[in-house]
Measured scan of single mutants.
Amino acid sequence: TIDDAFRAIERAIQAENEGRYREALKHFLDGGEMIVTAAEKEASQKVRNLLLHKGKEVLEWAEHLAEWILE
């Protein structure tokens, strides 16, 4: 659900702030994927587009974090 997705993102932010970057990455990926999944089930085109945009933002952040971890 969207609530689960945002809880995962909150955990990711907390982990990132505490320097637990790999854990943060996992939570960002989980949250982003949950948002995209919820968007695919959404009946309203406007809400679907907003959710897809937010999911994409979260997944892009996860990608940047992963690249930073690997440096």
Rank of each mutant, 00 (worst) to 15 (best):
A15T: 02
L70A: 13
N17H: 10
H64L: 09
E18I: 05
E71A: 14
E42S: 11
F6A: 04
A38E: 02
A24F: 02
E33G: 07
E10R: 15
N17I: 13
I35R: 01
G32M: 15
E18A: 12
G55M: 14
H64P: 00
L29C: 10
I69Y: 07
W68K: 08
I13V: 09
N17T: 10
A38I: 14
A66K: 11
A39F: 08
L29T: 06
E63P: 00
V47Y: 06
K56Y: 11
A39E: 02
D4C: 11
A66V: 04
E57N: 06
I2F: 05
T37V: 13
E33N: 15
E33F: 13
L65Y: 03
Q14T: 08
E33V: 12
E40Q: 14
E40R: 10
W68F: 09
K41V: 07
E18G: 05
E42L: 12
K54L: 15
G32R: 07
I35Y: 07
G19A: 02
E42A: 13
A15G: 04
A8C: 12
A12T: 00
Q45C: 12
E10K: 08
R20P: 02
K46M: 12
I35K: 00
H27R: 03
K26E: 08
D4R: 09
A43D: 06
W61K: 03
W61A: 04
A43M: 12
L51F: 03
H64N: 07
K54R: 07
K46A: 15
T1D: 09
Q14W: 04
H64E: 12
A12W: 07
E16W: 15
L65Q: 00
G19L: 02
A24T: 01
G19Q: 05
E42D: 02
R11E: 05
G55L: 15
K46I: 13
K41W: 07
E40C: 15
A15Q: 01
A12M: 06
W68A: 10
K54N: 03
G31I: 14
A43P: 13
L52A: 07
S44W: 12
E10Q: 12
I69A: 03
I35F: 14
I69R: 00
Q14N: 09
I9V: 06
V36Y: 08
E18S: 06
R20H: 08
A62E: 00
R48D: 04
G19E: 01
L25F: 04
I2G: 03
K54S: 06
V58W: 13
E10G: 10
D4P: 03
T1E: 08
G32Q: 07
M34D: 01
Q14M: 06
A15R: 02
E23Y: 00
E42T: 11
V47H: 04
F6G: 02
E71Q: 11
R20W: 04
G55F: 14
R7I: 08
V36E: 03
E16K: 13
E42V: 14
E16R: 12
A12V: 03
A39H: 02
L50Y: 11
D30T: 12
A8T: 13
L50M: 13
L51C: 09
V58L: 11
L51G: 01
K54V: 15
M34Y: 06
N49Y: 05
A38W: 06
A15L: 13
D30P: 01
L52E: 10
S44K: 05
I69S: 01
L65I: 05
I13W: 09
V47N: 07
F28Q: 00
E57F: 07
E42I: 14
N17Y: 09
W68C: 10
H64C: 11
R7N: 07
W61M: 05
L50D: 12
E60M: 13
A15K: 03
L50R: 13
F6H: 05
E42Y: 08
D30R: 13
L29P: 01
I13K: 06
I35H: 03
I9P: 00
V36L: 15
R11F: 08
R22P: 04
E23S: 03
R22A: 09
L50W: 15
K56F: 09
E33Q: 14
R11K: 13
Y21T: 02
Q14A: 09
A12Y: 03
L50F: 07
L59I: 07
K46P: 07
W68S: 05
E33L: 14
G32S: 11
E71T: 12
A39V: 10
G32D: 01
F28A: 06
E71Y: 08
N49Q: 08
D3E: 13
G31P: 01
R20S: 03
Y21Q: 00
W68Q: 09
R48G: 04
L25E: 00
N49P: 00
I2L: 11
K26R: 10
E71F: 05
E10D: 07
E57H: 11
A39T: 03
L50I: 14
V36R: 13
W61V: 02
R11I: 07
A38N: 01
K41P: 02
E57Y: 07
E10Y: 06
A38P: 02
R22C: 15
Y21C: 08
K56G: 04
H64S: 09
F6W: 08
A38H: 06
Q14V: 10
N49M: 06
D30G: 05
